[in-house]
Structure formats: C-alpha cells, structure tokens
Amino acid sequence: MTTEGQSQARPVVEIAGVSKVFDGRAQRATRVEALVGIDLSIAAGEFVSLIGPSGCGKSTLLRLIGDLTPPTSGTITVNGKPAERARRDRDYGMVFQAPILFDWRTVQGNVELPLEISGASKAQRQQRAMEHLRLVELSDFAGHYPWQLSGGMQQRVAIARALAVDPALLLMDEPFGALDEMTRERMNLELLKIWERTETTIVFVTHSIAEAVFLSTRVVVMSPRPGRISSIIDIDLPRERNVETRELEQYFHLVTAVREALRGDERSGGSPDEDGDDIAARRVAAEGLSG
C-alpha cells in the first residue's frame, strides 16, 4: 500500500455540486430530486461506503460516478478526467447486485469479456483472467458455466471480471445484497483481501451498517428526499481487519455512530420504506437503453 499521506494527495473521484433530477416526461408530478448538492472527494486507496435508506440516491450517485447516467448539474471527475472520458478509458470496474454473467460463456470467458472489448491479445486475456480467478479463488472453475456455480461464486466471478482490466476504481452496487448472511460475511473478508492485494479504490453501496463499518475507511451517510449527504464518518479501525474486528469495542462505537446518523435522517423526514432509489435506478436503466 502507498502511504496514507501520498494517497490523500490524489483524489480518484471528485464530485462537486452535483444534482440529479428525474423528470417524469408526462407529468410534472413525477419529478424526483434524486440528489442535490453533492460534494465528495475520494482519495486513491480509500474504501468508501455509501449507506442510507431506500430513496436516498446512493445507487444513483454510484451510477453518476460510472457515467451510466449524466448528472443534471455539477461536475464529476474520475482519475482527473470527466466521468465520461474515464468510462471510455475503462478506468473503473463495476459490480452490480446481480452477477450478470453471460450464460453462453465459461467462467473464464466471462472474466475475459472486458479484456476482449478493450482489445487485449488472446494470450494476455487468458493470463489476466486466470490471474484474477486465482485472486477470487475460483481457478478450478475456469471451465465451468455460470449456472453450475452458487450465487456467492457467481458474484466472485463478477468481481474478478471487474478487476480484470486493473481499474483504478472499483464501483460496487450492493454486490452482496442477494447473498445470505454467512456467505456475505465471508465475501466481506475476501473483498478486503482483494482490496489489499490490488490497491484499488473502492466505492461501495450497501444497506448494511455492519458491512459498511467493517469494510470501509469512510462511511458516507445519505438521507432521502431530496437525496443528499448528511454526514461522513471516518472509520479509524486498524487497516488489517479480520473476524475479531467485529468484536472490538471501537467497532461497536462506530456501528452506533452510523446508526445514529441514519436515525437522525429518519427524524428529519426520511422514510426507509419507500423504494424511490430503486425506482430511480430503474428509470435510469431505461433511459440508458433508449439513448
């Protein structure tokens, strides 16, 4: 790892005055202010979690960083370039809640997909794919087809695929949300190992307070209607984390701090029951397709 002081100097993600409004095309009434006045800077090597109730725009924020949807106003810089340029330069890898593996490709073929698209040679693709499958401990399954793997294994393939191009930034949208608690905790440990070995910057969207505190160097707490950042909590746990980390007193304090930050938002009008975030994200998906 580079030293903390150096990495702080170069932000990988720089978000300034960003807002995102979803306009219902037919009626004004469906206009949703998904995000307002977002400012956030993420340094190289950081692990930043975005947490908040449904409707707070955390997924939308991640999609803005990845240029999967454009902001209504403000600027987003990734690796020192506009977000769109960074996407075209393939500066980031993305992991979604579903693994989205291609049925007709083997595990290795799936990991090679982004390498094929970026024009890597065959030898290079094979070597990189195998290297990253080893990283997620799936090299024995290179020749399997996705349906032969469990949900957790499929998600690990998706992570290997995102890392295969050696991105400076890894964007993860509730990647373990669909997994059971046991698998999720194991995946958390594995993700930390990967983060350590690859030295990537990770932006991680989650619903889980425990997960956010356990994984992150910083937790960004968001609140809904309109979606905004309500507080940022530094997670000053030791960098090396393991099963015992979850039993540290400091860990409990931080979990409590995040929980209170979230509860503060609820009092100020956020309702965790509404799925505005998901609706917004789906609308963006539809927009992206027609565009």
Partner: peptide, 14 residues
Amino acid sequence: DPRAMELMRSYAAS
C-alpha cells in the same frame, strides 16, 4: 438482460 447492456456500457463497448 437490460442489466447486461449497462455492463457493456460500463466497458464503453462499441
């Protein structure tokens, strides 16, 4: 799968 199209977009696929 529409989500696969998003994935392709994230790769800046032609």
